[in-house]
Write a protein that binds this DNA or RNA. Sequence first.
DNA 1: AATGAATGAGTATTCATTCAT
DNA 2: TATGAATGAATACTCATTCAT
Lengths: 192, 192, 192, 192
Amino acid sequence: MDDKKKKITLSAMKVFQNKGLEKATVSDIVKGAGIAQGTFYLYFPSKLSVMPAIAEVLVERTIKTCEKSMDWTMPFENQLEHFLEIVFQFTKEYRDIYALIYAGMGSSKQLDVWEAIYEPYYELIGNMLAKAKQRGDVRDQLIPKRSAALLIGLFESAAEQSFLYDNADEKAIQLKKNEALDFALHALGCFS
Amino acid sequence: MDDKKKKITLSAMKVFQNKGLEKATVSDIVKGAGIAQGTFYLYFPSKLSVMPAIAEVLVERTIKTCEKSMDWTMPFENQLEHFLEIVFQFTKEYRDIYALIYAGMGSSKQLDVWEAIYEPYYELIGNMLAKAKQRGDVRDQLIPKRSAALLIGLFESAAEQSFLYDNADEKAIQLKKNEALDFALHALGCFS
Amino acid sequence: MDDKKKKITLSAMKVFQNKGLEKATVSDIVKGAGIAQGTFYLYFPSKLSVMPAIAEVLVERTIKTCEKSMDWTMPFENQLEHFLEIVFQFTKEYRDIYALIYAGMGSSKQLDVWEAIYEPYYELIGNMLAKAKQRGDVRDQLIPKRSAALLIGLFESAAEQSFLYDNADEKAIQLKKNEALDFALHALGCFS
Amino acid sequence: MDDKKKKITLSAMKVFQNKGLEKATVSDIVKGAGIAQGTFYLYFPSKLSVMPAIAEVLVERTIKTCEKSMDWTMPFENQLEHFLEIVFQFTKEYRDIYALIYAGMGSSKQLDVWEAIYEPYYELIGNMLAKAKQRGDVRDQLIPKRSAALLIGLFESAAEQSFLYDNADEKAIQLKKNEALDFALHALGCFS
DNA sequence: AATGAATGAGTATTCATTCAT
DNA sequence: TATGAATGAATACTCATTCAT
């Protein structure tokens, strides 16, 4: 990605996170990026149009974290637990901005844009499930890539609920994690 | 709910749906509600504060639909499938506004408000699972109410992904439904 | 005219005169009118849309000046000369703003608006010519109202040229006046 | 004129005509001229400074049209009518841009610039009147060059009024032409 | 309770102009 | 000469909110 575009994206991420969608100003963003006001519009047509670029960064980071920290030789159950941890960690850190991205999706009717962004994420988790399937750790009929999407959705929902309702309560969060993991293990047929 | 408050809420729902969070104006809302500009502020302290009332309406409608159309004597699998249909239907119709509510949650730090709103929804689905547990249709260790939250999250994610990525393709949507149902049935231990 | 609308119009006139079309700001205008920024837009949809209201004021003033200072019993030649003086005087005072109105006409494609504004002016001068015709001071075939428009156009052109090219030279201006008057007297058939 | 300068001028003419003074951008102009943004400023110090060059082009074209199509041996009345036609035609085609030039004159206080530009136009029509005078077709006391300015002003006013008020009505336009011609013929003493 | 005219703070966006190449 | 990326000042307009009636 173009250097300036990247700078803008990262600055926008911080600003949106701190101030929310409406309070965030382009002025804040360019100040953070160290560029002039007008330069912003050479790279993005509007304030909201930075959203997909931010989503891309988040997906990249999630994938990178998974790839770096995941030990593919671990028992599948441990892999799943580790992935759950990552999802909770990212949700905690970026939940505000996820909401904005989510809200921004509606406006931009270019759905294929979003699909392209999340594709590598589904691919990665799909691969994890495929390997587990080869090893017989999950049920036979499972379609790895498609289940990956459901799994990610499940974990993200759980994390979101966790931070939304049980906010600072560490115990409740741990409980939620256990339940989500149990729910997923059954769903994937790890106990059959 | 007060008649005027209800009018405002319903009008706001339409306006937010059509115009999005930022383009929607209080002026639009009051026009739709047939009241004066100032009257809005007798019922809501700010534009965004209508959001919880809208969420409440959506939850009410979902619950009412479930209660009306659900046959609690059906086999559990059919109940689950029926519930899935309802989630997909509501997501399709209200997905734009769900996103706004979701994004609005972040701003309003009164998390207990949101919890209170969704509570009856979790209660309803929790009851469904509880009955299924009594009949031995789901696994023994399952905690009905807590699994309800995960189940709802799963189905909503699936529906959201469906309408986000596979937009108008009826076939893909059906496939997604089947997978989500299968995923849930395993998760709930219906096959063990 | 509404009191606030009038205040805005008069303030805008001054501001446009002093700063020109582009340098004039709505902020200047409302400051001069002693109202809030937003109030401007309750009365005019845009900065340029004040132009017709300004034109109306100018026409009103011209007419009022004619009516007050014109002695309808004077010999026609003297009446014409007096009218010429008035045109030169108004052109000198308002020439900058006339140019803006003129330029603004193009944008506003509601030509009937302009016609309605200038109508009473043509009416007034038309009446002057009609009376002169009755008295046999101008040629018989003359159509008063239609000639009025040509006469006004001629005098305004003359004045405009005068102040545009011969700017501060009082002698040249006097010469121009004489020629314009002579030209008009011949055109109206006062010498035949 | 330098080739690039000419290109810029012609492009600016089109852009100003289509978009008006404020909406027209240097970016539009250079795009139309097929040159780079910065190149504009090698030939003109500012956006508005193109205006005199445009006026020059218009005067040139008017003169060229007169010289090409005018038969100086025709009876004077016919010459005058032909000239009137040309004025109406040019006004119709360029009236939007005339207004801008007119408005632009005020800003640029270099009045001598404008005088120099229009000088050859007055010269041309002045010559026409001088010849007519020699032939006894107009009154004796007439000062050709000075009357030329009044004549041009009269015809331009008539045309402007015509297109401003009677816009598309061909009949009304014809009527206006007849009246303007009659007015001018009397003014010039062709009937005495 | 209801009104709606008035407010005025707030900002995305534009674009004339510059300047390093 | 020519370029066009970068600049950043400048402003029309919006709209949530208030308050006198």
